[in-house]
Amino acid sequence: MSKLLSMTEAIRRYVPDGAAVALGLALEPCIPFAAGHEIIRQGRRDLTLIGPISDILFDQLIGAGCVAKIQAAWVGNVSEGLGHCYRRATEQAQPRPIVTEDHSNFTIGLALRAASLGAPYIPTRSLLGSDLARKNSTFLQASSPFDGSPLLLVPALQPDVTILHVQRSDEDGNAHLWGSLGICQEAMLAARQVIIVAEEIVSREVITSDPNRVIGPSYKVCAVVHEPWGAHPSAVQGYYDRDHQFYHEYHTRTRTAEGFQQWLDEWVLGLKTRQEYMAKLAPARRGALSVKEHRYAAPVDYGY
């Protein structure tokens, strides 16, 4: 059954106001910027964002006023450091106040993993003694029932919807993702529903030729969006590399709320679709980011 939808329609149907949305789960690569920009265009409000190290997509959603709460390990600009919109929201409640539940990369992964296993929590020794352990009120500290040693209990976290950007998918949402995976698989398995955004739509036969490459079961997928370059300025292995200059420009231009609004008008609100965004991105810039030398994996034999 085809689940192919336009980005507009996928976001309209599956990302309602107030939803808990997991995205940017591979850390720096494969960030679903196209999906995030559509969320901004549709004016979603009161979202909870879930992620590990989140790059500037979280900052943009926060600056656009879409976000009420953050459950993440890091919010900023990986190329530059601080996220200006995140700072304005947390320090001055601009454009609106937000609540942050601070995690580490490990605990946010464990929280999603717990949900994916149907476990109420996963214990860890990470973060013991830190203020992170004390100030995130979802954590509990307890003693191991086995040997009495101190433990941090990380409760299960279930996103309403997880948005994953992948290299390729079939129309049913059987998706191949490769490269470093971050917490993509945990977030997919934990979520109630999953939106797959793919560089390429391929046949079911391409996917089933290599089932080890599939990120999770397609029955969780509610929508598949075909969006080439949909993760720019982040990298997608085998398609394009990270556009460092773009992160730098964003950092420089968004120091003030007015600067952010101009940036947002130019790159998000003033554009209707990802095609318009890509048309705006100079061809030379696109060329510089494209794959220069293909490096294919050796085929594997699933024969019997």
Binding site: P52, G76, E91, N105, R125, L127, S130, D131, K135
Partner: peptide, 20 residues
Amino acid sequence: WQQPRVRLPGSGGGADIASL
């Protein structure tokens, strides 16, 4: 903590590396 003067990005994996 309630009313930070500067909000920094957070732990990332830093707290895990320092712990483990």
